[in-house]
Write a protein that binds this DNA or RNA. Sequence first.
RNA 1: GGCCCGUUCGUCUAAGGGCUAGGACACCACCCUUUCACGGUGGUGAUACGAGUUCGAAUCUCGUACGGGCUACCA
Length: 506
Amino acid sequence: MDKRVRVRFAPSPTGGLHLGGMRTVLYNYLFAKQHGGDFIVRIEDTDQSRYVPGAEEYIFECLKWSGLEPDESPLHGGEHGPYRQSERKEHYAEYAEQLVKDGHAYYAFDTPDELEKMRLDFRTEQNPSPQYDHSVRMKMRNSLSMDSHEAKRLLDDGVKYVIRIKMPQHETITFKDMIRGEVSFDTSVVDDKVLLKADGMPTYHLAVVVDDHLMKISHAFRGEEWLSSAPVHILLWKYLFGEDKMPQWAHLPLILGPNGKLSKRDGAKFGFPVFAMNWRDPKTKELTEGFKEKGFLPQAFINFLALLGWNDGTEQEIFSKEELIGKFSIERVHSGGAKFDYEKAKWFNHEWIRQSSVASLQSAVGSLFNDKGITGIENAMLEKVITLVKDRCTLLTDFYDHSYFFFEAPDKWDVDAVKPKWTGDKRNFFIAYTDKLSATGNWQLANLEETFKRLAEEMNIKPGELQLPLRIMLVGGKFGPPVFNIAEILGKHETINRIKKALAVF
RNA sequence: GGCCCGUUCGUCUAAGGGCUAGGACACCACCCUUUCACGGUGGUGAUACGAGUUCGAAUCUCGUACGGGCUACCA
């Protein structure tokens, strides 16, 4: 099938790619893959004042980590490249001029100050934010309000200008949205949007239409925040390339934070990530934590993102990327916004950790320990530890909290938990137990436990009262997996050492 | 203010005219567990409101309320 979808992003510090943007990317990706189409990414860097160097590379790292790599490298071009709008500058002016020639657009010479004055002058209680539209355009300085000689003179003199679309009056624009069905707008309430800026760069409105045409985009999925400017884009299609050539639109619902639209700030405020990976703003040096660094598996990230506003109609919740490609359908995307629930996201991650094989977790967990300064762990040991604690970990980082004691002997113990019931008999028990352990050639879970219980019985102590002290000797506190499992993994030498060391303190 | 979009348990959602509105997260209780968790079983909990159409409405229509988006030479 000849499907071609594109996603866009602006390399700006705040407009990066947070949850909402990533989900848009994901849906585009799933749709493209499902139909055997192309998935391309376009860099919308036409706003030079907000351009942040390095943001492109960062975002491709995010896409790579999530497993959503585009078919053609957006950084190096491709069949319909370049995919960086700043490198396609010359295309846009040509189309803008075309629109002027056809009477669908005009030159406007108003300075920023004049625009501000207009907004102030026309401001009323009923209309707090006046627009540059059919009602005021004849009162402004543009090629519609002045005679053609004057306009030509200004142009020849090199006076800065923008090109604005001339929105028709009282026309109803209706289009079909794949999620919402028919949506219509009255053109007289839409302003004369700037198409080409004074610096020669296009605005999003012009660029999206021109690029979608040139890049032969068949489906355009974007966030709901674009819905209200859709009539401009549809008109542009009509004027430039024909409405029948227009891609099919889908406006995805917004992802909401705890209070309203999800923002980058919400992350810091409520303690959850909003970006796929750590992002440090080069200007402010402010760090925004990512899902990756927080300990999420990419599979879980994709999974919860996909389910935030979509489901396949069954009660299934855990989907692999391949299953999502098979089952996704844009028509089943919810039209209402979805509030992001971090607790549920963590649940997805927990499920994915449980399902993951030990082998697939090994390198991530290994490097986690490395980062914490614990090095030189043997693979066999790591494997055993992961197997034992995997089910209790919600985040990858939990592996540290649930198993660091395998690699670091405790140097302080929760003595308060032992002391009240500590007796000389118990001390003697542990001395006897270490002797037995030293002598044994069978370091198996069953044997360790059996020896322990038999000895306790012989010495007439309840084994239950001895297990907690043993645990505290081995790990330092009241936590961790079953105590004999710990001893088994720790090994003979280490177990005996830890008991002896603790005995000296108790 | 104007325009557009939306509204089912606290949260994500299922049910697109017809059984006691189903599931998941979270929460609570019990069980398992001589640690802490995991897990298991069960429970609390929703169709925003008001009209209309219909034998019958969460579902279709209208109005109201509430929420969100847009209203830049930003995307």
